[in-house]
Design a protein around this nucleic acid. Structure first.
Lengths: 247, 247
DNA sequence: CGCACTCTTGACCGAGATCAACATTCGTGG
DNA sequence: CCACGAATGTTGATCTCGGTCAAGAGTGCG
């Protein structure tokens, strides 16, 4: 059961043979619960294992000398946020929990073994890191070329689609325990302006984000405002067609 | 000879056995010269080959619906900017030349073959894409958390270190034919403000960028302003120690 | 029940955008 | 080799989005 989010993540993007799925399920994994707002790994670490996020929400961030924190990714169940440490010893970023989480640690040795024995799993993991890179590029465009409201809308759209692929969305509603301070660090705007921007989106009837619950009320206009298209997430099922209730 | 930039790129980050180097050198590669400001691949393409940048400078960018262009990476000789297309059919970005370039196209079939026969080359290529992701993360921090002057300084520092690793820097001077409009699209600020920012850096005696030539005149202060540390580039040789003239 | 965290709103400020005009450089064909 | 038009770079004036400061209101946890 603990491996399910990982399997789901794979299956949303590639196709596993029964052999491969069995191999993944038999990966030794040390499962641990982690409280909200804790670091799982820290910039500068040289981990000997990676971890899969099994439940809850986490984020990847960097602390700058100037004291600012920049969040560069939010993670959904099934993600393996520090998979890169398998090939790059020096970790360039920290990963922290947003709300309470369950994570599963997997030794690099076991990952290496499964990659050797199942080349298609190795290719699949590579693929996952390439999709992460697509998401990073989308964030670069978001931060560099959009203004605050559009930027927020794009982030929210991305979150909804990814959380949906992870099976966390019901009736356009999902649990997303980010604070406005977190959003400020992710969007590169001040906390005060996050508040004003969210108020504006809510008043316009696009969505609400209150007490950790995100509700989308007008998906088409939200998509439009955020110039959002889901292709870059490389999910085989296009949300727009498979989940008409969000249209 | 055409394969040299590629070999150099590998050797700067990993170690190739003679066998592996020979295999890379024997990769069939279709070499072509491309004029400045041309696209090599376009967003939405589904390429059947990747290409290595052999000479010149290129950039990865996305065009947004709003008409803005966001540049998300500048490439140096040895880079394989669209390596991801080996595993992700849909290309989420375009790659265009900045100045005149020489590129070498390599069929995916040949890449797949060399990955199968030389697992360490496969791992090395994966590693290269992971390093690209590190660079994207650094850009996210740059765009989200720094102001214009610091942002420009960081980009310039990154460019100098990467171009140096590619053997393109002499006496803190290198050819970098970007226009101020290109920099505006990369830094997420207006052309006018790029001009003012560069003027400011030049007046402060940190660097000059004129007629396609970048000259660093005060590396420590430039690094400091850009909060730049080169670890995230994962170059085995730390520039600060190996190239004391830049200190 | 009380303290700390989070959210909200208002007033004011400033980095950078936009608009406009002009200068310089470069590439091209005559 | 020169002339000319287009691309690029420069500078000033004005405007605006979003930052900063400040104070109060919820909310939730120990």
């Amino acid at each position: 059961m603990p491996h399910s989010p990982l399997i789901r993540m794979f299956n949303a993007r590639a196709h596993l043979t029964p052999d491969e799925e069995a191999a993944l399920r038999s990966l030794p994994m040390q499962v641990r619960a982690i409280k909200a707002k804790q670091n799982v790994v820290r910039e500068g670490d040289r981990p000997t294992r990676s971890f899969a996020l099994l439940e809850g929400n986490a984020c990847t961030y960097q602390n700058l000398d100037s004291g600012n924190r920049q969040i560069m990714a939010f993670h959904v169940p099934g993600d393996v946020p520090d998979l890169q440490s398998l090939h790059l010893s020096y970790l360039d970023h920290s990963v922290g929990t947003v709300g309470p989480c369950t994570v599963g640690f997997i030794d690099h040795a076991d990952l290496q073994r499964i990659c050797r024995d199942f080349p298609r799993i190795a290719a699949g993991l590579w693929r996952l890191t390439l999709i992460d890179a697509c998401i990073f590029r989308a964030w670069i465009s978001n931060l560099g070329a959009r203004k605050a409201d559009s930027r927020a809308a794009h982030l929210i759209c991305e979150t909804v689609v990814r959380m949906d692929a992870a099976g966390q969305v019901e009736n356009g509603r999902l649990s997303w325990p980010v604070t406005q301070a977190d959003l400020a660090d992710a969007l590169g705007i001040s906390i005060v302006h996050v508040n004003r921007t969210l108020t504006q989106l809510r008043t316009a009837g696009l969505m609400t984000l209150q007490r950790g619950t995100l509700t989308v009320s007008d998906w088409p206009r939200l998509k439009d405002l955020g110039e959002f298209g889901s292709e870059y997430l490389h999910l085989s099922s296009d949300k727009d067609h498979s989940r008409p209730e969000l249209n």
